[in-house]
Design a protein around this nucleic acid. Structure first.
Lengths: 131, 131
DNA sequence: GGAGCGTATGTTATACTATAACACGCGTCA
DNA sequence: TGACGCGTGTTATAGTATAACATACGCTCC
């Protein structure tokens, strides 16, 4: 379960090296000459990584990031702050948020599978840089 | 600002009549013979409706719903509970959530534009119906 | 009135995102 | 050895979204 195929390892490494979320086709373009040549290959790798909690999908961008948390802490629903200026993404870990998600999940759903929480805006760094 | 074009009104009416989120292409198919014939027309209408707070986009489904709140209350970030079984979507209005979103927005971003909050799972009704 | 402008609309084409369907090779284990 | 699972690969196609350009109508300002 925790052992990844070489393919998956390459995708993970690429995500970890990136400072921005990558779309599946970004990944495909960069790994073409490493043996990953078609979309399904990429999507399968991403699916696997997400199952293991090593990567997350950003629904509002249709893009993917490596998980920034310590491997143990996979209680977290993927929660993110996204800077639309520079593209940087920061993973949010917040007990109050987690609690709220659980509470609302229990209230509105009998069984909860997935939570999406994404904030978009301009990060502190980019506000400084603004011309 | 609050007056919609006939086109936009048709799209809104369709969304309001639907009991499930509709994709842009669902809308296109149903409104073909009402004068909306191409994707950009649909997307422009949706964009307008979302600007006015009359419709929301569900990022995790790439689909759209009419806003279920009373027109006044547009302080809410669109927050939703989605049943993957029956497709029903319920808009969540929760003070604690709103507060948490604001708090985290202020912490991680200098300026926040958009918040996405979507929970997926099985709704209470569907758990009952389960074979 | 008509020139200039903005807004809404329409059309074609294309880009981007995701998955279906099927084929192959390889290890394992009964 | 052969049935199976699993990872992988390929082709084709479905589904989502936007660019770029064209047209038309209703303004206002002179």
């Amino acid at each position: 379960m925790t052992d990844l195929s070489p393919q998956n390892r390459k995708v993970l490494a690429l995500l970890q090296a990136a400072d921005k979320p990558l779309s599946a086709y970004d990944i495909l373009a960069k790994l073409r000459r490493h043996g990953l040549r078609s979309p399904p290959t990429i999507y399968r790798a991403l699916e696997q990584l997400m199952r293991c909690g090593l990567a997350h999908r950003l629904e509002s961008l249709n893009a993917f990031v490596a998980c920034q948390q310590h491997d143990g802490a996979h209680d977290h629903a993927g929660s993110f702050a996204i800077c639309t200026q520079c593209g940087a993404v920061q993973e949010i870990e917040d007990p109050a948020l987690l609690k709220t998600i659980k509470k609302l999940g229990a209230k509105f759903l009998a069984q909860m599978n997935k939570g999406v929480f994404e904030l978009s805006g301009t990060c502190h760094a980019c506000v400084g840089k603004r011309k």
